[in-house]
Nucleic acid binder design. Structure first.
Lengths: 223, 223
DNA sequence: TCATTGCCTGACCAATCGGTCAGGAGTTCT
DNA sequence: AGAACTCCTGACCGATTGGTCAGGCAATGA
């Protein structure tokens, strides 16, 4: 983002280490509060007052730290995209399909599990037509999907899996894993739980892995 | 923004015997506009002014017809639930699993296809914690899921399908089908299309049916 | 003819929105 | 001491929010 194009002064000057700690803590508090509020109400529906209340700070302070509502929102989106990109590791044709697909499902599930608010924030952004993420979708993410798709196709050619459309397969995995964060209210309401336990998440992950791998003809790893 | 109907036309038919027609048309126009706006911005983010503009009517007229923002929103939710319930037909243990599951996937896909705005409206409501739908989720819908789950289990006992958790299976189908309406912006951005054609939807439906049926060990119908 | 009735809407309201700004509080430097 | 600098916030701004209401308009009943 905005970093060091203009040298200016070094921020190495520390005025009382306690104040630096406060600054970091406030910043984290605001980001966490904003993620909750934006996820729940969407960009337009969220108010800076609600975010400030959640963070336990005056509204002016939120604007002092973040500059503007739009800037805060974009920053949260970028943070979520970084988390997403972190698990988009490279794979090769030589890898084992079962291993790769399971790792894919598992890491995606953990991302939704670890950052449910961020996941919902992302979902709300897409739901509203992705006004801030068009570029990312049509660029970086599209390239990543195409690269993976090509590998899936090569696996199919080698008879390691059924010749299913790899793009629809990726969407299937995304939707199935994202569901438990985005539609949490529905899942909890129907199953009658207060929250999903780690055991539940593990069970769901196993279920999804088994059904999807079997569904596209990937034989579990045999050593 | 977009003026759908010229005032002159409205005046001409307004107070004549066809006034009932105008009323019906306005009501439909408002509901359609509201569905779009609520789906895009969520309940709080949507404004009556935006809905009125979309419908080509003054804001006061929207309130005259619908009473309040909340009432309008609830009415839209109920309409969507009716559409949903319409495809929740009864099934029995004697039915063919492959047939039922395929019909399930196909009708759910068509619902998302035919009412994408309604689908997104529902998604936004759940995303925000389902403040207006708690009762429906914990009552009607939960009962429906349990009834289906029991049948799936009996199928598994009879060896007609793998003994997978039926609730997770239902969620898998819901998420996979809903995805193409709710995350339309992502799907279009990544695939580089302007819209999904009927052929695309048919291809996706076939893909999902094949993978999911195979994935939980349901052999395609053999007659 | 005039009063009534139902459909409709411009003008208006208090509340809230995102954002600005002057200035207080607290350190550090000269 | 006082200037300079950063961190912070109450008060305020114009715009917009959901909602109300008095009254205009056209058709009907008498």
């Amino acid at each position: 983002m905005t970093q060091g194009s203009a040298p200016a002064e070094r921020e190495a000057r520390e005025q009382g280490e306690a104040s630096g700690v406060t600054r970091l803590r406030n910043e984290r508090e605001i980001l966490a509060a904003a993620e909750r509020v934006f996820a729940r109400y969407g960009y337009r529906g969220a108010s800076l007052q609600a975010i400030a209340d959640q963070a336990g700070l005056p509204k002016s302070n939120v604007l002092y730290y973040m500059g503007s509502k739009r800037g805060l929102y974009v920053r949260l989106l970028e943070r979520m995209m970084e988390r997403w990109n972190a698990l988009l590791d490279d794979i090769s044709v030589e890898d084992d399909p079962a291993e790769v697909l399971e790792a894919f499902i598992r890491s995606k599930m953990q991302l939704s599990r670890r950052h449910p608010e961020g996941s919902r924030l992302f979902a709300a952004e897409i739901l509203g037509g992705a006004p801030f993420l068009q570029e990312y979708l049509r660029g970086e993410l599209r390239d990543w999907v195409r690269a993976r798709a090509r590998i899936f196709e090569q696996w199919a050619e080698r008879g390691l899996m059924d010749p299913v459309d790899p793009v629809w397969l990726i969407f299937l995995i995304w939707s199935a894993t994202q569901h438990y964060a985005d539609f949490e209210a529905q899942v909890l309401g129907i199953t009658g739980r207060d929250a999903l336990s780690d055991a539940d998440v593990e069970e769901i992950t196993t279920f999804l892995t088994r059904v999807i791998l079997k569904g596209c003809g990937v034989r579990p790893q045999v050593d």
